[in-house]
Design a binder for these strands. Sequence first.
DNA 1: ATATAATCTCTCAATGATTGACATTCTTTA
DNA 2: TAAAGAATGTCAATCATTGAGAGATTATAT
Lengths: 164, 164
Amino acid sequence: MRDTDSPSSSLPADDPIGLQSFAVLLRRMNAEFNRIAQEFAHTQGLHLTDVQALIAVLDADDAEETGPMTPGRLRKQMNLTSGAMTACLDRLEKTGHIRRVRAADDRRVVHLHYAQAAKQVARDYFRPLAQSTDAARARFSDDELHVVVRFLAEMNRQLTLVRR
Amino acid sequence: MRDTDSPSSSLPADDPIGLQSFAVLLRRMNAEFNRIAQEFAHTQGLHLTDVQALIAVLDADDAEETGPMTPGRLRKQMNLTSGAMTACLDRLEKTGHIRRVRAADDRRVVHLHYAQAAKQVARDYFRPLAQSTDAARARFSDDELHVVVRFLAEMNRQLTLVRR
DNA sequence: ATATAATCTCTCAATGATTGACATTCTTTA
DNA sequence: TAAAGAATGTCAATCATTGAGAGATTATAT
């Protein structure tokens, strides 16, 4: 039935912790997140791009270090051209998810803020994720959860170093 | 400077483990993964969709339980229409990443296999991720890593339940 | 057997997001 | 004050995606 491909025996013999497991588990989780984001975008009549941009605006608004998001910063962060960025922000603004505010100190730049509508939107979007997270959390002790948080933080630190 | 939005103080006072941390950390990791995938797709002259499809084909080819991927299954998994799926597979086949093989037992279905070129492609794609994972792993004991694996597996289990 | 329904993949015109070069507005530097 | 630089926006062309349907194959019922 299955034509014999080169037998890519994916699991080496000595793999107590699951060397492969990490990549597989992380990739699968990533795919699930993307699926949920995709579905949410669809129900809201938005695109995945729009939702990702919206989240970035939200996160930047929360993180005081960076200041509010700007089209230029978002453009670089999302690897979009200026035309696409403008169109994306137009959609988000037209649907009332974000506001564009000219900066007072440098009138070239535009500050992006999430509107009230976006708050509910984000809540809805993250509800299933939050529920899943809670359900998963419930099965671990505090000490174990501390380990997981440490690991996630460390992963993120490492991943941001992979900017070529 | 920052016009005072409703002060969404994101961190409740009592948050020993980081109730928020989980969502933030997971979202950020997701964004990093997507960025790497996006960049890789760009260097290969592919689209993010194509890369995601390629990975799905690869994973299915490894996981003997399900059998090789088919356009229909991939279509559902990726929430694409048939037209988009065909176009995506056309691109992947034309660039030599996958092969389409008519199934012998049911000649309506097509089996998708990754070509040799895709192997190298996948290796390149996952190299930085693997390196990051290894670097992160190195800072944890075996017991701790077991906890993380358990958590990731549990998260995936919970997330797949969020199929509405 | 034979027709009918169901399944799987693909085609194609229409839609619409993205690209890439350029324009516009504003700031900084010489 | 002029010129260079920076941030955002405009617009025609490009190309992925949609959505309805066709074609080919298998399953079901009469």
